[in-house]
Design a protein around this nucleic acid. Structure first.
Length: 223
DNA sequence: AACTCGGGGCA
DNA sequence: TGCCCAGAGTT
């Protein structure tokens, strides 16, 4: 099945379905062009980790309005950071990560977020998903951030067969034309939140059933 | 590979 | 008020 998926068609159909893509730390109601610095993208993405809260952007805005630069955050009191980012959830862990990351960006990288995946992964609190988000949303570089939505959908549809998200990332990079890497994450996240949900995917509303392994092998027979 | 971390949203 | 959800670090 997966070898035969027409990614041009898939992307086109998803774009027709979802005009506004999700964006870590960005207000999903606003259709504006992302104009944030790589540092803002990095911090916002850390704040959005393990959060489906659509209000994560409020935490980013609160933090950056008081502490705009890496130096500001690095020198800010931890408790104040916690208070500001509270709306994003998991604020204790996230505040420590954000502060440590800001310290390193300021002290070791001259306030410039590295554009290198290895250097990004070296930051505590930055894994493959976050690092790839920084490349895509911060630098406009092609990368495939695999969150649970992308992982679930890819396996469910039969595009990949992978246990770990890292395997999914590798497989997707081989199969999906590079020109789509920039947008595939946003489209799949929207798709995953609205239709291809973790449980009980809404196949009756799905525009991709004709290219979906789950629909063909599981859903169709049971309905 | 399995376990831990711990907060928001919703039935 | 349980139950589901969301990545990265640690062991």
């Amino acid at each position: 099945m997966s070898e035969y998926i027409d990614f041009d068609e898939m992307i086109t159909l998803l774009k027709e379905e979802f005009k506004i893509g999700a964006f870590p730390g960005k207000d999903p109601e606003k259709d504006e062009t992302p104009d944030r610095s790589p540092f803002e993208v990095l911090i916002s993405t850390v704040l959005s980790q393990r959060t489906k809260d659509v209000n994560t952007h409020k935490a980013s805005e609160a933090l950056f309005s008081k502490y705009p630069s890496p130096k500001d955050i690095a020198e800010a009191p931890l408790d104040d950071i916690k208070e500001l980012i509270k709306p994003s959830g998991f604020y204790n862990v996230k505040a420590e990560r954000v502060k440590r990351i800001a310290e390193r960006i300021h002290n070791e990288f001259n306030d410039q977020v590295p554009e290198d995946i290895g250097q990004l992964l070296d930051l505590k609190g930055v894994g493959r998903k976050t690092a790839n988000c920084v490349l895509v949303y911060g630098f406009g570089e092609p990368a495939v951030p695999v969150d649970t939505h992308v992982h679930r959908i890819s396996n469910r549809m039969g595009i990949v067969e992978a246990e770990k998200p890292e395997e999914t990332e590798k497989a997707l990079e081989e199969k999906i034309p590079k020109k789509y890497w920039i947008e595939i994450n946003r489209l799949m996240v929207e798709f995953g939140k609205n239709i291809c949900k973790p449980r009980e995917p809404l196949c009756e509303r799905c525009p991709l059933t004709h290219m979906c392994r789950y629909y063909e092998e599981v859903y169709k027979d049971g309905n």
